[in-house]
Design a binder for these strands. Structure first.
Lengths: 340, 340
DNA sequence: CGCAGCTTTTGAATCGAATCAACCCTGCCG
DNA sequence: CGGCAGGGTTGATTCGATTCAAAAGCTGCG
């Protein structure tokens, strides 16, 4: 096997006694190469340990088979799960994903996007939680196809779960369990996705006469914030202490659980519902009921959409918005004895 | 700003009325370019919205400024935290990191490594838990610098935390708290790193007369496995039920906590120590005491070592093994009232 | 034997930036 | 006034693979 990586396609050609063009055909138009020749080339390739140079290929071909993925909120395990799923899908189509995260730093985000452009990625997936208008514009300015997730403002084609329905499913579940004093825990700092979930909760409670809604704002959507929120809820006057809580995502739900399970009975006194159904939810102190947003589908659709953008298969042109349906997973944090 | 990304260096040169060589100098030898000329070039660049093409640059320069990072065990949050830290360090030196994970799939791993070679990454960081001999050989065969973490078998330069000491710190802490019936929970399937941690625990107990050690084997090192282990421990005969547990990592520790905290008092009846000190540890049902392996240092050293491998700064040649010191973080899972 | 119609193979041109030897000026010194 | 140093600039060549028009081989048929 190979020496120190200075093997070029030309070397393979020489060794196999053919022209470089033929070796190239061997890779890209195998049908045009005679079996006998192919055999010789194959031999030459692994005698020399040849591995093609993608930079050269990309230069000539004007496509890199790279996809840029800019994620925010990497702290959230859901994000990590998404990356895994998306990577897998992308690999199946021959793409390599460049995963980066801006950690909410605007300046850094600019830099990362520029890196994508320098690398001439074939397309970019943005998994943000805030505004991305400017970023989308920059990419479009460079002719780079873009797809968004969880963002339906129409700046670019997008895939998203129905947030309002998500909120509704959670609230309905609690109401059906007889809970009336509901709390919604999550930060609202202009994040559309959360406003919509809250709206879904409101939709449901509007139809339940004796119900009440308490909204608890958070700094972040982390386990730590969930804990803080729990303290705050516990400090409320008795009549306002909720018997049902919708957490904006699972980490927050788990934070709530970790603190509340010391003080009250879950779910008897307080039932808690999370959102996302991260792997961890099922393993919490009290297994957490959650509105699942199945990730394989999410990732697959995102890639499909991006891929069609890249190939200009104008499937409905710019207006492609894919909306997925979440579904409720019931566990012990709302219904006792649901254990496996 | 830029049209549809077909702007070449040559176009900038034309627009600025200079030769391509000068524009190139503008980027790489700014001192050689007269200020007046530089001004014109600068103007041309943002008139046209020029962004250099890294593929072309890489081809000519024979360096890509890309680093490949193959991780295993992505499920573990520690892994995610490491990626963030390593990325940050790498970016500071102008590298872009290609993060991938083989999910334990051997065949896939081969493919991913080949991708690194095709991309002609400048170096590779391997963050494995199992054998990597073959992988290291392949990369070396292609002349790609490699650095390992948590693997001191000498196949390549490496950075690691002192595992034996890690085990010792955990065990000493428990013994100092008066615990004598110790359990070690973790899978041992040939993973060196774990064998060493266990050895550290043994080192300590060997010096404590009336102590005993129970080893619980796991399938994986996840929260779920921790839960399973908890069931198994609880089922032991009373005289073997431990009063101190060392979990092979934090997720396992949290799984143990999540189940045990329902049945016994933690830490009064059982004290639990995890390893890694992931962010989540502090937020568990009962904040988890953990042997921290500070990640910033880990990432920084890994990059430093890889960078010096890339530049052939033979700092001790092939024999560079960097060993870091873990430290104990005490929380309520071992000492009550440690809360903040 | 010649030729149409395939299948294979060839090799020069090309992608976009980096490199570097050669060249052009200016100014200064002897 | 000629020579020289050195700051600025030039542009042909190169990196490694892909492309494609054209050439070369081959078959079978009249």
């Amino acid at each position: 096997m190979g020496r120190v990586s200075f093997v070029r396609l030309t070397d393979v050609a020489a060794r196999a006694g053919v022209s470089p063009g033929t070796v190239s055909n061997f890779f890209h138009n195998p049908s045009r190469v005679a079996e006998l020749t192919a055999e010789r080339i194959r031999a030459a390739i692994d005698d020399l340990g040849y591995v093609p140079n993608d930079a050269a290929r990309a230069l000539r071909r004007r496509e890199t088979k790279l996809i840029g993925h800019l994620a925010f909120e990497v702290a959230n395990p859901y994000s990590a799960e998404f990356v895994r799923a998306f990577d897998r899908e992308a690999r199946a189509l021959g793409y390599t994903v460049l995963n980066v995260s801006s950690e909410g730093d605007h300046e850094l985000q600019r830099t990362l996007i520029e890196t994508f452009v320098r690398q001439r990625v074939d397309g970019v997936l943005l998994t943000p939680t805030g505004g991305v208008g400017e970023t989308v514009d920059v990419l479009k300015g460079h002719g780079v196809p873009v797809v968004l997730t969880d963002n339906l403002d129409g700046a670019a084609p997008a895939v998203a779960y129905d947030d309002r329905l998500t909120g509704r499913l959670a609230a309905e579940h609690l109401v059906n369990l007889g809970r009336r004093k509901i709390a919604f825990v999550g930060n609202r700092d202009g994040v559309e996705i959360i406003a919509r979930r809250l709206q879904g909760v409101r939709d449901v409670l509007a139809g339940v006469p004796d119900s009440s809604l308490e909204v608890v704002d958070l700094e972040t959507r982390s386990v730590a914030s969930g804990r803080v929120a729990a303290q705050r809820l516990a400090a409320l006057t008795p009549d306002r202490i909720p018997d049902g809580i919708v957490a904006v995502n699972d980490p927050v739900g788990i934070g709530l659980l970790n603190v509340l399970s010391h003080r009250v009975r879950v779910p008897e006194d307080v039932a808690i519902v999370g959102i996302d159904d991260i792997e961890f939810a099922a393993e919490a102190v009290v297994p957490l009921t959650s509105v699942a947003r199945p990730i394989d589908d999410f990732a697959a659709q995102s890639l499909r959409l991006l891929h069609s953008q890249i190939h200009g298969d104008a499937t409905g042109g710019e207006r492609s918005l894919v909306v997925l349906e979440p579904r409720l997973i019931v566990r012990e944090s709302t219904v006792p004895g649901t254990a496996t």
